[in-house]
Amino acid sequence: MPSTADEIAANLRTQIQRGELQPGDRLPGIETLAERYSVNRQTARQALNQLKAEGLAESPGGRAGTIVRQRPTTRLVRSRNIERDHLGYYSGPTVQHWRTIQGLGLAIDTRPVPADVAELLGITPGTLVLLRERANGDPEQPQYRQLAASWFHPDIVEDVPVLAGGTGLGGSYDRIEEWAQQPLQWEEEVTAATPNPAEAETLLLPPGVPMLRILRVASLGRGSKARVVEVQDIRMSGELFSVRYPLQRRGAARWPVQPSTGDYYSAGSQP
């Protein structure tokens, strides 16, 4: 019985994952796959396209055909601590030296706010909201970059109108804290997303590579009196970056704990 495109792709995927096919190795061509698996050319092409869509293979052009794509084996860990230098706040030492990417500088505009950001801001989806969007990254390693879009609550823009223009050293966060005379608080939500074409182009994402998305909510005050002033939509390669954080012991998990089955070892059990 002829194989399906999924079965052919699964076979090649296994060979890649086991290291039988190494990065840069040429995959069997359409004619070879069609003959080997007793399928037509269209089925063989679908199998190769499936591996490309997963980011496992690529076609560099010329006579190279389809090859196994080189993928990073380690990721740059993004600290989610807020730190500060003479320029203002930043998220961890790995990005302190990052700068705005030439040709992809700051854009200030008023646009309809997307639904998920609107919910965090506590406003109606589609409301026209001030947006400050920029792309920054590592000047020495251009593949390490991120997109950041800051959506500001209309009320804070009314209170701090400089947010719609040049904010100077320290940026938006300094101007808000100066006005409020109190510190901002931040909370983040980390998800994965499929990039749209513009995001993939700006972030240099090959086909099949997911996007790491972090929604950072900036608030003044705490608890029921907290006022959300900005939501920052941060996007980066899900293949090049990771987020790491310690797990905290809380509640009944604080040490020392009460074992669920009593004193297991003193009862004669061995490790």
Rank of each mutant, 00 (worst) to 15 (best):
P2Q: 02
S3P: 09
A5R: 03
A9P: 06
A9D: 02
A10M: 04
A10D: 13
L12Q: 00
T14A: 15
Q17K: 13
P23E: 05
L27V: 05
P28Y: 09
G29K: 00
G29S: 07
A34C: 00
N40Q: 02
Q42R: 08
R45A: 04
Q46N: 12
Q46W: 00
L51G: 01
G55T: 11
A57F: 03
P60H: 04
T66G: 03
T66P: 00
R75A: 14
R78I: 11
L87S: 11
Y89K: 09
H97Q: 10
W98I: 01
W98G: 00
Q102T: 14
A115I: 02
D116E: 11
V117L: 11
A118C: 06
T124V: 15
P125D: 05
V129F: 02
L131Y: 08
L131N: 14
R132V: 08
N136Y: 12
N136D: 15
E140S: 12
Q141P: 03
Q143W: 11
A148P: 01
A149K: 14
S150T: 13
S150N: 14
F152G: 01
H153G: 01
P154C: 07
I156D: 02
V157A: 03
V162E: 07
L163E: 03
G166W: 09
L169R: 13
G170H: 05
R175V: 15
L184M: 07
L184Y: 06
Q185N: 13
W186A: 08
E187L: 12
E187N: 13
E188S: 15
E188Y: 08
P197T: 07
T202W: 07
L203N: 01
L205Y: 02
P207G: 08
M211G: 01
V217R: 10
R222Y: 10
G223P: 09
A226T: 07
Q232T: 14
I234E: 05
G238C: 07
G238I: 05
E239V: 09
L240D: 02
L247E: 15
R249H: 14
A253M: 13
P256Q: 11
P256E: 12
Q258S: 13
P259Y: 10
Y264K: 05
